[in-house]
Design a protein around this nucleic acid. Sequence first.
DNA 1: TTGAAAGCGTTACCAA
DNA 2: TTGGTAACGCTTTCAA
Lengths: 351, 351
Amino acid sequence: MPSSMTDPAGPRATPTPPTSAAVARRAGVSRATVSYVLNGQAAGRVGERTQAKVRAAAEELGYVPHAAARSLRAGRGSIVLLAAPADTAPAFGSLFTSFLAGFQTALHGLGYTVVLHGAPAAAPLAAARAWAELRPAAVLTLDAPPPDAAAVALLRRSGTAAVLTHGPPAAPGAHTLLLDQHEAGRAAGAHLLARGRRRIGVIRPAEPGLARFADPRLAGVRSAAAAHPDAVVRPLDLALTEHSAAQLAAAWPDLGLDAVFAYNDEYAMLLMRALQDAGHALGTAPDGIGVVGADDLLLGRLLRPRLTTVRAEIIPPERIAALVDRLIRTPDTAPAAHRLGTFAVVARDSG
Amino acid sequence: MPSSMTDPAGPRATPTPPTSAAVARRAGVSRATVSYVLNGQAAGRVGERTQAKVRAAAEELGYVPHAAARSLRAGRGSIVLLAAPADTAPAFGSLFTSFLAGFQTALHGLGYTVVLHGAPAAAPLAAARAWAELRPAAVLTLDAPPPDAAAVALLRRSGTAAVLTHGPPAAPGAHTLLLDQHEAGRAAGAHLLARGRRRIGVIRPAEPGLARFADPRLAGVRSAAAAHPDAVVRPLDLALTEHSAAQLAAAWPDLGLDAVFAYNDEYAMLLMRALQDAGHALGTAPDGIGVVGADDLLLGRLLRPRLTTVRAEIIPPERIAALVDRLIRTPDTAPAAHRLGTFAVVARDSG
DNA sequence: TTGAAAGCGTTACCAA
DNA sequence: TTGGTAACGCTTTCAA
């Protein structure tokens, strides 16, 4: 049976993938020469004819260098590890997806490989150990709780040049990418107060992963209200279901509130529908309930009244990628906080 | 200066992270013994006292094994590479985010590491080469266009046990995870036709990455309409902006349509709002325009009329992870198509 | 212009 | 019960 015969089941997994040694053998040169040619270090060292032979041999064999072997030898890897457990992703929502895509592409352009690690949030130290096995150049956690001092120390000692967390809070020894949710609440609260609202409800989503964002937002509203002696702030629990929203709407008259900060645009839409179905007026209508969402989704502009919302102005993922790259190159940079963005109110008709 | 003094700038990156050799030296044993102890192969080979010494030394040094060195030695890696370029993620939407989280967690539980590779969709062969450098156990592309025969062959030869693509179409030599968009269109079309609609518009999103899903959906509606000689199907271009929707709504009377399949719930919401603002009735109202969306988002239940939608019943990510694991273990399984799920209409009031 | 050899961190075989 | 040693695939210094 001729070896050139095609396997009808398609290409099979070769027991041993081609190595640079195989290329060298086929081209009749040494492994060193192969390395020089294939890494562009051949100028003035290897003859033209030899280079051509090497390239041809590599091509014919379908040779692809082995990244692990290379970085083992080089002593430094090019992995940027993104730690984002399963229950975090929904919390970040569609913003997360698009951020991830841009961030990933930017890092790729800088020569890094992004590894997504969805460790089921175990003990911080155990998680850090699992990450450290990959010898990442940088670790970026979107996780809560953030790594503690011991976890950061373990990573640093195992060669991780930069550890970044998404905060607040700040993790000791790590850089912090700061997006202050408190500020979102403060902006929403200040806006409603300036519009004359004084009895403000604040939605606390029932989804557990969101408490991390919701609590500081509530505190932000409270801090805005502190300037007005007659202002009242009241937390309201709400799950992302029609049933939960109907319950809240039914209880509304007893709450005596004139406005609500709905955590985000989706909760806002859900609540607005339930309030309207229960016969309440919204926005600037007489006795209308003021509603403010967050995230500035398209749907907010399609609602009636149009939804006032708090928008996060996030710095572009390319800049964050560049920051990570810089921190990797200067591993001894003192840990600091880096502002990820700010919040601004987009005023429409609902509040 | 005592070496136990804490560095005020936090733990610094050690020039050389601790290796198993360092642990051996500290414990006064050989590297082999360390390996046995730390991998649980020590039963009946290494004395209790020695084991304790080794563990203590590893702990004190903060030793963490080097995954790349390990898999180099083992000859097989545990990476599952997920190829999803930046412009694909938005196309999959929030469904993608939640799928990704579940899939990732499931694979992690099976001992794999998920690597996200957002190669800016270059030539298929170049992309395959970049993937092959990581020597992944499996490659799963969500990418369009799918890898061609040469790309698949390159991966297989470099040791990738399983290559999976998301289709249709099927890629030669690769397994296919099948989610037939044609069926979604057929289901929507059949539903509208059964409700007596005959002049059906089909939204074609302007976003380029979506054509891949939109075109088969359109074809599906057409195939459903083929059974009705008097049925008309007409593609309608729409971007995800209020302006674009307003344009389409303004042109509506000239189109002479009585129903529309809006690609998904977001486009449906956008279009419904624009049609309502232009004075058109929707759903079962007299002369109401029938609207069908897709994805069964919460927002569809909040619209008025409530949105009829096509829902994908996707098999759970754990099952897909198990499939990938099985294919890795039996690398010579003949390429086949695996159904990812089916589509069903959720009938509400809009169409 | 090319090749030989060392070494990155691991594990597994074989000898002591 | 333990240790020496080779090998995984690659790059780079040094010598020819």
